[in-house]
Each structure stands twice: as C-alpha cells, then as structure tokens.
C-alpha cells in the first residue's frame, strides 16, 4: 500500500520497540500495523528493532528441551499435509477490499458499505469487532469539509488516516499519518474540502465533548468495545 507521499506523523520509538517485541497491548497493534503499511521509514526501524531483539534472543541461556521433543516434532511433520503455509504476501485483494489496509481486511470481511454506520453530524462511525475488551476500535468517516465536534480525551485516542485528510489546530494529517492524543489534548478535526476522510481510531476511554453539548452528553459517553 503506497501512499502518494510518505506519512509525516509517526508512532514514537517506544511504541515501535514494543511492537517489535510483541508486547503492545491488544488493539493498539492494529493502528500501528496499518501505519507500517504506509510508512517505509517505520518499517525499516521496526526491522532493525527486530534485529536487536534477535540478538538478545540468540544470547539467552539455553534451556534443555524434553528428550523426545525433536522426535515429536518430526512425527508431527510427517503427519501434516502442507496446511500451515504463511499468508500469501502481496496477494491481490478482493475488489471489496480495494483501498483497505491489509491489517484491517479481516475486520471488514464484506467491505466498508456492509458495515453498520452511525451518524453524528458530519461524522459517520462504525465499531469493529476486534476483541479487545478494554478498547473501542472504530472506523470514522468525515465527509468533505465536515467538522467534528470539538473534543478532548479521558484516555488515549490513537488515530491513523486511511484515505483523504483532515486537519486540526496542530496540523494536517494525510494517508498513513499516526496520531496519539492524550487526556490534555483538545481538538476540533475538519476534513479537507476536496474529499472525504476515512480513519481508524482506537480509544481506551470515552472522549469529552466541549461546550454545552458536552455538558449534557459527557456523563453518558462510554466506550463500547466489541
């Protein structure tokens, strides 16, 4: 998945090293995997971090395995008919999945149109069934020029742009850009005038709306992981 331009906003080095170490929690790995599909620079760094990990792995103190472990493995090898081959790399996606990052495809098996979209102003949102009980994973779609209600966060919101672009007071975010917003960040995203914007968002706590709407709605805001 090659974006026209390389992403400008990246995960920090701790997230990349946790990813390479396989210790990223739950759904947090998802936006990171999506970002990597767009970002050559982060792919390279991750590869190098994997090499660091491999060096450490190689230097662990070996622990003897069971006496018959090799024999058992060989017996299993004899009994299988090549059923566990790696997922095909670079396979052509079904038309339904055109433009959808590889890491997301299994979450939208029937394509974007088949999802259950909820509309809130110019934002349409659809929760995805990732299976992380502590985080809500959702696709968010803002129509061209659409403004999203100003909001802050009670926890961490990770967003990665899939298509189109949006901006807030801090910058303009395009395909592949990776953003992490903490409790103190308040922003009011606006989609670009010339096209819709599709993002993946992972939230571990509900957002906090600004202004009078927020006063009414905030007590009822919840994240609803699927």
């Amino acid at each position: 998945m090659n974006a026209m331009t390389a992403p400008c906003f990246h995960p920090d080095q701790f997230m990349l090293s946790d990813y390479a170490a396989g210790s990223l929690q739950g759904a947090v790995a998802l936006p990171l995997a999506v970002h990597l599909e767009y970002c050559q620079q982060c792919r390279r760094e991750t590869q190098q971090l994997e090499e660091v990990a491999a060096c450490l792995f190689e230097n662990l103190d070996p622990v003897p395995v069971g006496e018959d472990t090799l024999e058992q493995v060989l017996r299993r090898i004899d009994s299988i008919v090549a059923d566990d081959v790696a997922p095909a790399q670079g396979a052509v996606p079904a038309p339904l999945h055109a433009g959808i990052p590889r890491a997301l495809r299994s979450l939208v098996p029937a394509g974007l149109d088949a999802l259950d979209w909820k509309r809130i102003g110019s934002l349409r949102s659809s929760r995805l069934r990732f299976g992380d009980s502590e985080r809500e994973v959702a696709l968010q779609h803002i129509s061209a020029g659409g403004k999203v209600l100003g909001h802050g966060h009670r926890g961490v919101e990770i967003t990665v742009v899939i298509n189109g672009s949006f901006s807030d007071q801090d910058g303009c975010y395009r395909s592949g850009d990776f953003l992490m917003r903490g409790p103190d960040d308040v922003h009011r995203p606006v989609a670009a005038q010339d096209g819709d914007c599709l993002c993946l968002a992972v939230l571990d706590a509900p957002i906090r709306l600004e202004g009078w709407v927020g006063r009414f709605l905030n007590p009822f805001m919840k994240i609803r992981p699927l």
């Binding site: 090659n2 990813y19 396989g22 739950g26 759904a27 790995a29 998802l30 995997a33 990597l36 599909e37 050559q40 792919r43 390279r44 991750t46 590869q47 790696a86 997922p87 790399q89 670079g90 590889r102 890491a103 495809r105 299994s106 979450l107 069934r129 990732f130 299976g131 992380d132 009980s133």
Partner: peptide, 20 residues
C-alpha cells in the same frame, strides 16, 4: 482466553516492498 479477530501474523507481518 482473549479472542482477538485479527490473526497474529496479519498484525505482526508488515512485509517488505521489492524496492527495499
């Protein structure tokens, strides 16, 4: 007993572009 929908190899395999 965490049942996550996305295969581990899908999440942790970012492939490599031929140009790389």
């Amino acid at each position: 007993r965490v049942h996550e929908e996305v295969d581990v190899d899908e999440l942790w395999d970012f492939g490599t572009d031929p140009e790389e």
